[in-house]
Design a protein around this nucleic acid. Sequence first.
DNA 1: CAAAGCTTAGGACAGCTGTCCTAGGATCGA
DNA 2: TCGATCCTAGGACAGCTGTCCTAAGCTTTG
Lengths: 191, 191
Amino acid sequence: MNVRGGATRAQIVDAADRLFYRQGYEHTSFAAIAEAVRISRGNFYHHFKSKDLILDAVIEARLADARRMLEQWETEHADPGDRVRRFVEILLANRADIQSYGCPVGTLTSELAKLDHAALGEANSLFTLFRAWLRDQFTLLGHAEEADALAMHVLAMTQGVATLANAFKDEDFIRREVRRINDWLDTYTTT
Amino acid sequence: MNVRGGATRAQIVDAADRLFYRQGYEHTSFAAIAEAVRISRGNFYHHFKSKDLILDAVIEARLADARRMLEQWETEHADPGDRVRRFVEILLANRADIQSYGCPVGTLTSELAKLDHAALGEANSLFTLFRAWLRDQFTLLGHAEEADALAMHVLAMTQGVATLANAFKDEDFIRREVRRINDWLDTYTTT
DNA sequence: CAAAGCTTAGGACAGCTGTCCTAGGATCGA
DNA sequence: TCGATCCTAGGACAGCTGTCCTAAGCTTTG
């Protein structure tokens, strides 16, 4: 593969990622991605034989990013409680995008479920990644038995906040709910 | 308007409602709705000049249904706390649909947001309806000052549960979270 | 009964979709 | 330098989309 070849492919995945997030998977056409990368549709087809394959690549890229992010947090925070807090604070860090487009994981999963798309399982593995990671943190905090339930609860709260923040575009609401989640976390993380 | 005319229109709205919920708005074509109602596309166009107008009618129908439901609850439960519990228990009553297709309000809102669709405001008014109703209940319970924040919190939790139930298709998770929400509600509803 | 209006069917239309083909240009290895 | 491989462009294709038209049937009203 050429030097530029890999770069083009990465650009396609990058543009598709952004467009899928902002406009939805189905609503984003081949032509739109090609235009965003400024290549012809013919060239496009050389890199990805079908739209489904772009989706696969996008999900893989998101998975890789997420893994990198979680590993990063593990080096930055020794305390598992702080790691969970860092996870919840994604809502604040990405509040602008969340208000405009919702959660990238939740909205993709829900769209693919409605489309009955083959890649739904892969998209769900994004949720599974976070779920397992959160479970590990709660286990480290000494709540092994209910760790998975707690992980799911954190996921549910963040998803709910993202959905409503998208609907009402209310930044104060996000801050309030993050504070509430953090207060709740204190119950499980106070030394 | 003929007797059968109104019935056909209602059938169209009904079929569109179901299809929009199960497949998403964009993914549902004129032809699919027409086939579900067993009428020709020409006839279809006589009742609705555009796809957007069907969406408007579907949202209006959902709003009317929701209003009826909330009024019903007000006659059935004298205690505002019980009314809020009844709201949360939608998650259990509709658990099969929620696991398959998510929340009808949340998924529609999030799809229309991505499509940048003109009817997004109308779809959001479904959320607003529930928000205002919940706010009223919390006000009646003596929490006027934080009533709106509590209403939003209930909405957020139910949305989060719906999203994850859809992703993981886990009925135990739904039951667990409903119990958790009810426990939380006890804090605000115990006499 | 007759006219008017409502309802229905079926097909036509342009535009967009994902897919695919061909052919020329760039880059690499020997 | 020369052949092989990769990359790119542009267009063709069938199929589906929402929209619209026309003409025939039906129901209601006078």
